[in-house]
Lab assay of single mutants.
Amino acid sequence: MAEQVALSRTQVCGILREELFQGDAFHQSDTHIFIIMGASGDLAKKKIYPTIWWLFRDGLLPENTFIVGYARSRLTVADIRKQSEPFFKATPEEKLKLEDFFARNSYVAGQYDDAASYQRLNSHMNALHLGSQANRLFYLALPPTVYEAVTKNIHESCMSQIGWNRIIVEKPFGRDLQSSDRLSNHISSLFREDQIYRIDHYLGKEMVQNLMVLRFANRIFGPIWNRDNIACVILTFKEPFGTEGRGGYFDEFGIIRDVMQNHLLQMLCLVAMEKPASTNSDDVRDEKVKVLKCISEVQANNVVLGQYVGNPDGEGEATKGYLDDPTVPRGSTTATFAAVVLYVENERWDGVPFILRCGKALNERKAEVRLQFHDVAGDIFHQQCKRNELVIRVQPNEAVYTKMMTKKPGMFFNPEESELDLTYGNRYKNVKLPDAYERLILDVFCGSQMHFVRSDELREAWRIFTPLLHQIELEKPKPIPYIYGSRGPTEADELMKRVGFQYEGTYKWVNP
């Protein structure tokens, strides 16, 4: 592979701008107003304001973009700056750019259920340069409990009458099928589907988006991507930290609602779906819905739930269990780990287990898709061969690698495990991989909904998990304890083995 010439960040961002501006969906010269509902909250200060700053800094926003914060707290732009700027990672050389960014910011205080507050917000936006005809993007960085009041008031008082209007809704989209349907029906009564952007930030990850290209742009994968060759698929999300004093919020939802029903299920769809007619948003989402419709409700015998306990040999936070978090209700049975087996009941995947695993306070930070292939028929190497695996590593250190057998150097035919490896950090030294939120917010500006969740996708996802969630809430089974920093409950490994996964433990990928 030829040595790549190092590029400056300015040059890299210039390439990104060229890609972005050559499309006809990006209205570079139009006025846009980006409204952050819930501007005083954690999500706004840690993710949304920093993301908008990065896009502005790199010249990736339309030229005439204004940012308006809205929340109940009586704040000023200076207050917003004070709480969000520490997350910007701005350099001293960017000081003038930073001043320009905050000059485009404003803030309006108001209630979430008060019509007069929204009329005041609308008047404020109209007073901005060309504000009355601007395109408006409303980001709901809010708890779902206020979605209905907020969307109703936005629709009645704050819509642009000339430009387009788009609304970005953060997960969780309800707690179960019934609450999700209620919320979807409410929002759909106010906005068209092409105006609604239900954001799952995992769909903005580079390697998640790469799944489609790997599958449908490489001839070698087509013939082997089926039940005849693939023994099982494992989708993993692991965090090495616990709730760390923020367990009160987590306890309301648990690990299945927080990660599995959305992030992991979306990745499953991209692995299992048929080739779409095109890369058009609805063509892709149509195929994802077909996959979900082929999955039956989760069966309790295919589920393992766990909850982390303190590690007596650990240090600091590792010595504390979930129930030691003062914000967690006493005696909570909320799971911090889950392993679930699903089956896609169609011709391509009949009988292939899709194993979804996620948890907190585990032994490493990792998100990946792992396809394990069947054993080689007619073994001539005296059971020395391990199964081939194709691994798409989402985070950290984005990579695609194939675990395969090669001859060990020497005189004899002794096979050993090795890999074919594409590590993004080595291959793409001159490429700026956008943060997931950067990519998705740019998608909203461009009107691309491919990486957002459609209402029928959402409904099918909740259909699969709601009976299990209701059973857990009714019966309150005690989750299996696992030690902070471990791989999780051993019962999860036993479940995976029972459905056909072979864990060798003899080879570990190392970032080159």
Rank of each mutant, 00 (worst) to 15 (best):
K89I: 08
Q195H: 09
N210D: 11
F21K: 14
V150D: 00
L96P: 14
D58A: 11
L16S: 14
E99G: 08
I187D: 02
G247W: 08
I48H: 00
E94I: 02
K171G: 00
R257C: 08
I224D: 04
K46Q: 06
R192E: 15
A116N: 07
Q83W: 04
D176P: 00
D200A: 01
N185E: 11
Y197I: 01
I52A: 14
Y118I: 07
Q28D: 08
V208W: 01
D251V: 02
Y147E: 01
T65Y: 05
E93Q: 15
P86E: 11
R57H: 15
D194H: 14
L75F: 15
S29K: 10
V150L: 05
G254C: 08
A149L: 12
V169C: 06
D176Q: 01
G242K: 04
D176L: 02
A116Y: 09
L20A: 15
A141F: 03
H186F: 08
Y139G: 03
L214F: 12
L190N: 14
L177K: 11
Q195M: 07
R227H: 15
Q83H: 11
I255P: 06
N165L: 08
A149N: 14
Y118F: 14
L61Y: 02
K45R: 14
I154N: 04
P92L: 04
W54Q: 12
E206R: 05
N153F: 12
N153L: 13
K89T: 07
R81M: 15
R74C: 13
C232F: 05
L43W: 01
E63A: 12
I162H: 09
S106Q: 14
P92R: 08
N122C: 11
I196A: 04
F102D: 05
I162A: 11
G248I: 03
K152Q: 11
E93I: 12
V233G: 09
W53Y: 12
F216W: 05
F253W: 04
D24K: 07
Y139F: 11
H201P: 01
Q28S: 14
F250H: 02
I48A: 03
E170H: 01
G248S: 04
K82N: 14
H129D: 13
H201T: 03
E148L: 11
A109D: 08
I230R: 00
E193W: 01
V150C: 13
L61Q: 03
M37I: 12
I67G: 00
V12D: 14
R17T: 15
K205A: 05
A149E: 08
P172E: 00
K95H: 09
N218S: 04
I80H: 08
H124R: 12
W53T: 03
E252L: 13
S179Y: 04
M207Q: 09
F221I: 14
P223Q: 08
F66M: 10
V169Y: 01
A90Y: 05
R257Q: 05
F191Q: 04
F101C: 00
Y139H: 05
H124M: 10
S117V: 10
L140N: 07
A141E: 00
I199A: 03
K45Y: 04
I67E: 01
H186G: 06
I162F: 13
F237C: 12
R175W: 05
L55K: 03
P92T: 12
A44E: 00
Y118D: 02
F253Q: 03
E99P: 07
Y197M: 03
N135I: 05
V150M: 06
G242M: 00
H201M: 00
G245H: 12
I234K: 09
A109W: 09
F138C: 06
A78C: 13
I33T: 12
E19C: 10
H129P: 11
E19Q: 14
N105H: 10
L128Q: 11
L137H: 03
I230M: 08
T145V: 13
V77F: 10
L7T: 14
C13W: 07
L137N: 09
G247V: 10
W164A: 06
L121V: 08
A115R: 15
I255L: 10
D194Q: 15
L137Q: 06
N210L: 04
R74W: 15
H32V: 11
N105F: 05
K47G: 02
L190E: 07
R81P: 06
L190I: 13
D58C: 09
T91V: 08
V213K: 05
Y118S: 08
T145P: 06
G131A: 14
A90P: 09
S40Y: 04
F241K: 04
R81D: 06
P62I: 04
F88A: 03
N64A: 07
G242I: 04
V208I: 12
N185S: 12
H201R: 00
L121M: 15
A71W: 00
N122M: 14
I234M: 08
V213P: 04
R104W: 06
Q11M: 06
K82G: 14
V233M: 05
S84R: 07
T65V: 12
G59M: 09
H32N: 14
Y202T: 01
S8N: 14
K97N: 03
Q22D: 09
I80A: 09
A115I: 14
G131C: 11
I80R: 03
E244Y: 10
G59P: 00
G14W: 15
L190S: 09
F87Q: 11
L96W: 13
R198L: 01
N226F: 06
F26D: 12
G110K: 02
M125R: 02
R57T: 03
A44G: 05
A71N: 01
I15M: 15
K95A: 12
G163A: 13
Y107V: 07
K95V: 01
D113E: 09
T91W: 12
G38R: 00
N126F: 08
L75D: 05
K205M: 03
G38M: 02
G204D: 04
R257K: 08
N105P: 00
W53P: 07
R120A: 14
E206T: 09
L60I: 10
A25L: 09
L75T: 14
Q209S: 08
H27V: 15
E18V: 03
A115Y: 09
G131K: 13
L98Q: 12
N126S: 08
L43R: 03
K97Q: 13
N185C: 09
F221R: 02
Q178M: 13
F237Q: 06
F88R: 05
L121I: 09
F250G: 00
Y202A: 03
V146T: 08
S123D: 12
T236Q: 13
M207E: 03
L137K: 08
G254W: 10
R257S: 07
V150I: 11
I80V: 15
I199W: 05
A127S: 12
S29D: 08
S160V: 05
K152P: 04
G38S: 02
D30R: 14
G131S: 15
G59V: 03
R192C: 12
V5E: 10
I199T: 09
G254F: 01
A116K: 14
I256Y: 03
T65H: 07
S184F: 12
G163H: 14
L211D: 00
